[in-house]
Nucleic acid binder design. Structure first.
Lengths: 335, 335
DNA sequence: TAAGATGGTGGAACCGGTTCCACCGACTCC
DNA sequence: GGAGTCGGTGGAACCGGTTCCACCATCTTA
């Protein structure tokens, strides 16, 4: 594998000149540039990102911390990120977080020298202590689905989303409504599920349709616990006519419970999800859409902006719009 | 940010000694080691991976090339990879491939110096020319769902999988069978869909149940085209009693077509998928399971083995088992 | 024509580690 | 007691780039 000095010797110039050609420095004559370019091609030379990074103090890498395993919505955000990052010259290094210890270990790594020029956090709220350390290490950082004030963030209004869900189901004529969501004290401090619930319940209370407690349930993240919870209140003689789930995955869990009990969706039960992950479209799930891929794209653009011009770093909140997408799992009740 | 020479000065030793402490070299007295360790902690020193990599000629990075956007099954393989790689000391750099040009660009990058110690290819068959270049660059490589003979691979027997699907549906009493899969001439040269189809059709022919041509359909990857194809043959007066889809995503597409036409699954139509992606479980889809996460884990282990002991590099094929998982979308036909 | 400005170029120093070689003191052995 | 061995250590050289400074040829200006 050729090095820059071999290229220099081959072209009969100094290493500085080769470096200038590589970096499009203007003060090289066309004739010299041409000769160097030819040598580069003949020797199939490619510069070492390690050596370059060491000298420049930059890595051309963007670290993405994501609780990868548990959340399909995170995968969609990641897709948006990869799309917006492709062709930017930055590489994407994945730091999957499965538990709190991994999360700490990754944070520790990333505050070290020469790790990444920028960081994107997906659905991982920052503690104040972490925020301070990250600020000291002077790295650019953008949050998705979390919003510590020290850094820019891309979020949605979950309370509003819950309210949208409630109003949609009310408009369809439903009055007997249930909710299935995540536990409040989950390992990472997400609040989105709770916010969606309170937005949902507030609207219902306002119109006098507050559901009984046993129709408002929370379990650990994932479809399985949603199935168990829904089985519980769908089995009884008096059951809700519609269920709002705090995520599409949980909505699938509810649908599975319904199927097991011989209930047809949407004839016997309407199910409304939240997120609009790709499978929701494939399966015709009605849901409250948030722009998942869009959140990744926006985060990437913000980060690239900060990296291109560090002075422009304002820790602004970007609130993305929500919208109800009505597909085949909700239906209007006959009066 | 402290450097190794600052640590050396602070501890009153030479840089060599600090380096030896960092790398657990035995010839350091406990007393010196202790003093250096204390200085490291006091200065919050962390070594630069760039400098280390430059000198050692290794990057401690593993590159994963994956056609990320189109395939949920690839995401599951990626999960297996991340899990097996966590704690290995290697970082995972993602190279998402969206088109052939990106794929070439990434291949070109990765054959350069100091890029990655190992490469994992997910569902991206290698050309001979690429294989030669990769061999020259002396990088370790493991393929998943592709099997160029030059490198180790983790695969399944797709023909066998198609046969399993056929036999399962026959056992349930179905005789009127349809197939939906990918186009043969897809951009990346996948053959899995075709192999599954031929395994499926061979068994059906053997028992005299070969379906008519209009029940054997192929479209571009994804649920949408599957919906369109299925709508076509499900709408007619004479329709199949069961559909085998070459992937779970396409099975979802078929289910959506059924729902649109007012057909209930499995009462009016049995649907069998292939892959067993996570959503398949959530939705109770019957499917031919291949160990997706397991494929990622095995690939990671193989790669780590090669990296730990380059002499052990044998380009072996590892064929993973297949199994029919019967859930709620297939049912036994009454006689 | 001499002095100064200018643009192109070569090469040393440097980024922050690892590794090898030289050195030193202590210990062993004849 | 002197030669040889050995474990521990310091520091220079090196990995492969970038960048700055010095230098030179050419051109401008007095």
């Amino acid at each position: 594998m050729a090095t820059i000095s071999e290229v220099a010797r081959h072209a009969g110039v100094g290493v500085g000149t080769v470096s200038r050609v590589l970096n499009d420095h203007p003060s090289v004559t066309d004739e010299t540039r041409e000769r160097v370019t030819r040598s580069i091609e003949e020797l199939e030379y490619r510069p070492s990102p390690l050596a370059r990074g060491l000298k420049r103090g930059r890595t051309n890498r963007i670290a993405v911390l994501v609780s990868f395993v548990t959340q399909p919505s995170s995968v969609e955000r990641l897709r948006g990120l990869t799309r917006a990052l492709s062709g930017s010259g930055y590489e994407l290094v994945l730091y999957p977080v499965e538990d709190d210890e991994q999360r700490r270990a990754h944070m520790d790594t990333l505050t070290g020298p020469h790790q990444a020029d920028g960081i994107v956090l997906i659905s991982l709220p920052l503690s104040d202590a972490e925020a301070v350390r990250l600020q000291q290490s002077a790295v650019s950082l953008v949050q998705i689905d979390a919003s510590h004030t020290a850094f820019a963030s891309v979020i949605t209004n979950d309370v509003h989303g819950g309210a949208l869900a409630a109003r949609h189901l009310l408009e369809l004529g439903h009055r007997e409504l249930a909710f299935v969501g995540d536990l409040e004290d989950n390992p990472y401090g997400f609040t989105s599920s709770c916010d969606r619930r309170s937005g949902f319940l507030d609207v219902l209370s306002d119109v006098g349709c507050a559901p009984p407690d046993r129709w408002v349930r929370s379990g650990s993240m994932g479809a399985d616990s949603a199935t168990a919870l829904a089985r519980d209140f769908l089995a009884g003689p008096h059951r809700p006519s519609a269920v709002f789930a705090a995520s599409d995955v949980q909505a699938f869990g509810v649908m599975l419970a319904a199927r097991e009990l011989g209930l047809h969706v949407p004839e016997d039960l309407s199910v409304l999800g939240f997120d609009d992950i790709e499978t929701a479209k494939h399966l015709g799930l009605s849901t409250v859409r948030q722009p998942l891929q869009g959140s990744g794209e926006l985060a990437a653009e913000l980060l690239l902006g900060q990296l291109a011009d560090p002075a422009s770093n304002v820790p602004e909140r970007h609130v993305l719009p929500l919208e109800v997408v009505s597909r085949h799992t909700t239906r209007e009740l006959p009066r």
